[in-house]
Design a protein around this nucleic acid. Structure first.
Lengths: 115, 115
DNA sequence: TCATAATACATAAGAGTTTTAGGTATACAT
DNA sequence: ATGTATACCTAAAACTCTTATGTATTATGA
């Protein structure tokens, strides 16, 4: 299980990535999808997910649509046009950050000595 | 410049990685080293760094040694034996998380459809 | 049939970390 | 003298997450 500390900064980007590919998803579906994709190693808590979704909606990145399925309410989220470009940007930014981080984590003693 | 949001969860691990390789470093040196290694794209703020260092010391992961160099006070930090194994663990955990994240970010629409 | 798990949403108090902004001090170059 | 670089530190406010809780329906196993 990955520490939630690590997931923190990447939560919104993960949400945007999934919505970008799937078109529309509802909250519970996002938690299950992340769980499956991460092979159980990332477990999004609802207390973190829903506030994030609401914030993204407020920012104009997502729109919602409520429907009843099997007698239960579902709230589907999807990217707005603005949201689509935000998603692309955030995903690129995260990839770029990971490359930087990787370089740091792979830096050897001999290299660091000269900095 | 990487958003500070992303750096958040990884700050302590970056500190531990550098100390693991360099043996001992002082605060200002850490900020400059991260700046250089990241090609100016990660800028640690002192308001985040020093509290983190102090927390790591309290946890028994680091010890300190104050010295005067060129008339200025420096406080060197280094890993305790416990800290060394913590460092290894944290670094491995971060690498593992990045692999998971990479898989998520590279997942294509066609794959997601079947989840 | 009745309890439990799974599905599905949501919020609020408390905890934890960072940002922002400020403070102190020395060395050195202009 | 003034600014820049070096070097440490902290506190209030802002932000986000964790933990705990609440509501409600459907499915399932005992």
């Amino acid at each position: 299980m990955h520490s939630s500390e690590l997931v923190k900064g990447t939560l919104k980007t993960i949400i945007l990535k999934l919505l970008k590919e799937k078109g529309k998803m509802y909250g519970y579906e996002i938690t299950q999808c992340v769980k499956t994709l991460s092979r159980e190693s990332i477990q999004l808590t609802e207390g973190a997910l829903y506030p994030s979704l609401h914030a993204l909606e407020l920012e104009g990145i997502l729109t919602t649509e409520s429907v009843i399925v099997n007698g239960r309410a579902r709230k589907y989220y999807q990217l707005t046009p603005t949201g689509k470009s935000t998603a692309v940007q955030k995903i690129e930014a995260l990839k770029s950050f990971m490359e930087t981080l990787n370089e740091i984590l792979l830096t050897e003693k001999s290299v660091l000595k000269n900095i």
